[in-house]
Design a protein around this nucleic acid. Structure first.
Length: 268
DNA sequence: CGCTAGTCCTGTCTGC
DNA sequence: TGCAGACAGGACTAGC
């Protein structure tokens, strides 16, 4: 469920724990661990040097040689609570108790997410596409991704090896803002359209972050609170409702197995 | 190599 | 109220 703006929101809230150290870590479900070797003993006593995001991944830097990395999948949550509070909810898989009295809780009912313990962070992320809000994500880079490819443009926006962090909601919203149908073959976009799409992606993601993410169903931030961007969605989840720009009913189709929302009049 | 369909899992909502 | 079926902010993979 969480895409770039949601993970970014969580990371920013967790920053208050930088400098704290890990008293202990409780792994309640082993199958959420994505590595055969997962030496939890190495985590004890480690100081959290930094907390950051890469794409949809949440990274705890525990020194120059160790990173604890989470992916929230479709249904994952990551939140803080006082260590004195009992973790009562279902599907809590990891609890990290810090020496500042805070417990960090990782919860994921569907278990599409995962946890990694990674020494070489560069290598772990070597196959990932550029960050859409970084200076490296230019219109020229986007053009390079889209040209010569006949897959629907939306598929390519969702491909984490090409661009990191965009998911189903922000793909649909970016394409609406750009006025481009999601099922257009990528190679059919003109240079002007690519420029518009590039600007739209950045604009929509920035707005998503500013409003602290989208709570469409069950996303919650690190304080277990809802986001605000759901009130500003133009197409996602608005099938059969009138387009706010032209009044035509928003359509829902299926692209690459994902439900896809767009306006047949405003997007061409 | 590019692309699509199928798969993993639990919870929730809709319609009969 | 029960129950079946569809669907969900993701991402691998097998196979064409």
């Amino acid at each position: 469920m969480p895409e770039l703006p949601e993970v970014e929101t969580i990371v920013r809230a967790l920053q208050t724990n930088v400098g704290a150290s890990i008293k202990n870590i409780e792994i309640r479900r082993k199958d959420i661990l994505r590595l055969e070797e997962f030496p939890t003993a190495e985590l004890h006593g480690r100081t959290i040097k930094n907390i950051r995001r890469r794409g949809k991944f949440l990274i705890f830097e525990l020194g120059s040689d160790l990173n604890l990395i989470f992916h929230l999948g479709m249904s994952g949550r990551f939140y803080m609570q006082a260590a004195t509070e009992e973790p009562v909810e279902k599907h809590i898989h990891v609890i990290m108790n810090l020496n500042n009295g805070i417990s960090l809780i990782y919860q994921d009912p569907r278990r599409f997410g995962g946890v990694w313990l990674v020494r070489d962070r560069e290598r772990f992320f070597s196959n990932m596409g550029r960050e859409p809000l970084s200076s490296g994500f230019t219109a020229v880079y986007l053009e390079g991704i889209l040209k010569q490819r006949k897959a629907p443009v939306k598929n390519l926006l969702l491909n984490q090896h090409l661009i990191s962090g965009i998911g189903n909601i922000y793909a649909d919203e970016s394409l609406f803002t750009a006025g481009i149908r999601p099922d257009r073959p990528a190679a059919s976009l003109s240079r002007q359209e690519i420029k518009k799409l590039h600007r739209s992606i950045r604009k929509v993601l920035r707005q998503g972050i500013k409003l602290r993410g989208t709570t469409f169903r069950d996303y919650r931030d690190a304080f277990n609170e809802s986001g605000g961007f759901q009130d500003y969605l133009k197409v996602y989840g608005r099938q059969n409702q009138p387009c706010q720009q032209c009044g035509k009913l928003i359509q829902r189709i299926r692209i690459a197995g994902r439900s896809t929302h767009f306006c047949t009049n405003c997007q061409r």
